[in-house]
Design a protein around this nucleic acid. Structure first.
Lengths: 142, 142
DNA sequence: GTAATTGCAAAGGATTTGCTCTGGT
DNA sequence: ACCAGAGCAAATCCTTTGCAATTAC
């Protein structure tokens, strides 16, 4: 027996039609580890040879967000960043302000803290982001 | 003996000159309870009869934020909102995804953790942001 | 065939910048 | 008088919308 599996969850739900662009967006999100901006995703799709408009990327991300399939967070610079929800283990990033080098860090204690402090304020269904920036030792001038 | 007390903390620090506009901005912030956008603050100042430009409001808020005198958070709609800090110590925010209600949280342990984990990766001059979002108990549907 | 989807160009909206004028000290 | 601060207008940047052409079903 075979189970036909559709990649795009919204297609499976019959909410949208299957298009080359929709599939492509879903694919990049699947391959991406952390949060990425719409512009960033669009740039990569283009670089990967996909013929797709920025508008379409925005529209798909919006749709996915409305359906809870991606997380959206407003970055400090005003950009919205998106990430596929769910499976990947949760972690944070340590980014060098000068060279952009990134280190992934994981710390259950922080997760627990965020959960606890939010719950005690009467919140539930928490999500959080932690971003640490600094200057790394390998940079010129460090 | 009398101690001359300047309202505007940055003036007290000798960081800026005292101007009608600067004082006005500081005054509104002092009167305001929650977070307010730059545009909002500007509108009110104008309504209060102050002659002040939007640019100036932005510049003052930016300056205050850099000096840790106001908190800035990005609203869901992309607007930045500002509020005078209660304590001038470093803290984070817990934001309700549905109604936008905000709670200030402070946790030295997180600061220490961020510092430690970054240092052990060879970083220095760290900065960090922590954003926790959730649904608060006061919201319809919670 | 019909309606959803795409994508360009233009619109929007918040914030920043260039540059000259004003006003504190 | 000198230089920081003010503010208009124009520029940026991200995101959304209008609308005609395209494509899925």
């Amino acid at each position: 027996m075979s189970i036909q599996r559709s990649y795009h969850p919204l297609i499976a739900r019959g909410a949208v039609r299957s298009t080359r662009q929709g599939t492509a967006i879903n694919a990049v999100l699947e391959r991406s580890a952390g949060f990425r901006s719409a512009q960033d995703l669009h740039a990569q799709l283009r670089q990967d040879g996909e013929k797709i408009g920025l508008t379409t990327v925005y529209r798909h991300l919006q749709l996915l967000a409305e359906n809870g399939l991606v997380d959206v967070v407003r970055g400090v610079d005003g950009e919205s960043v998106y990430r596929r929800c769910g499976t990947e283990s949760h972690h944070h990033h340590l980014v060098c302000r000068r060279c952009g080098r990134t280190v992934e860090v994981e710390e259950p204690a922080v997760e627990a803290w965020a959960e606890r402090v939010a719950r005690s304020a009467g919140f539930h269904d928490m999500e959080h982001t932690v971003e640490i920036t600094g200057l790394c030792g390998d940079c010129p001038g460090s």
